[in-house]
Amino acid sequence: MTTTASFTLPRGSSRQHFRRQMEITRHLIGQRFDAQYRRASLGVLWVWAEPMTRLVVFVLVFEKALQIRPGGNATIYLFVGILFIRSATQGLNMATTSPMSNSALINLVGVDRRIFPVVAVGNAFVDLILSIPVIFILIIVQGETIPFHTLPLSIPIMALQFELLVGAGFVLAALNVRIRDVTLLVNTLTTMLFYLTPVFWSPENIEGTGFEWIVDVNPLAPLLLSQRDVLAWGEMPDWGALGIVFVIATVLLIIGWKMYTRVSGTMADHI
């Protein structure tokens, strides 16, 4: 369509618009949280149930049966890995399908459709943040010490993960509006991502196998390793690797924003 087509609202209200959309984002994240947990009899305990059961299985399978030793305290290593990769895959999957899962809202005025992927990733982050105290409990139970001096660094690393996921979420959701296969593709990819990111193995485990590049091409790998450094080991993260992730995330965010904005206007016609 080369001819001009436009819809305009009164000018000068973009800051107000942003504030409103933030309010709606908060409301939607809270609403989903309520629906999922507050109404369940065991409430928020369910946020912990899933990663805890995974942890038990993983300790049994990878550490005891397959004898994979990732270095450091294996239980803590596994749990931090599980939490962050779970949040990332959950966020990516939900962001990809967010235009469809919000189909009810697409037909209402007042909500900027660009908040859907943000809400999806935000939902995954709420679960993640609520699970972080369990890491500390685990550290204490395992007789290790909580690294208070590096803990605050976890926040900017999480913000970077948020940026990366929202950027990727915009790209995938935009594609998904026109090609529904993307939902299934992302499901498959996130399953792969779980095994290809150092969750239950460490980069040292694959040294000399010729597969070291798996860690280098995966922007989630440095994020995960850095979170372990600051939350569990009390070490400085690899700032260089995080810098590269920041560049990738920013590029994805810009491209994704443009792609998503383009499909946003006629989204109601396709959902």
Partner: peptide, 23 residues
């Protein structure tokens, strides 16, 4: 739906003078 921006026009211009139309 065109008047309140739920869907964008294929051609032409829609100018809504209210910031918060309600459908």
């Amino acid at each position: 739906r065109l008047m309140c921006g739920v869907t964008a026009p294929s051609r032409g211009q829609v100018i809504c003078h209210y910031a918060n139309p309600c459908l």
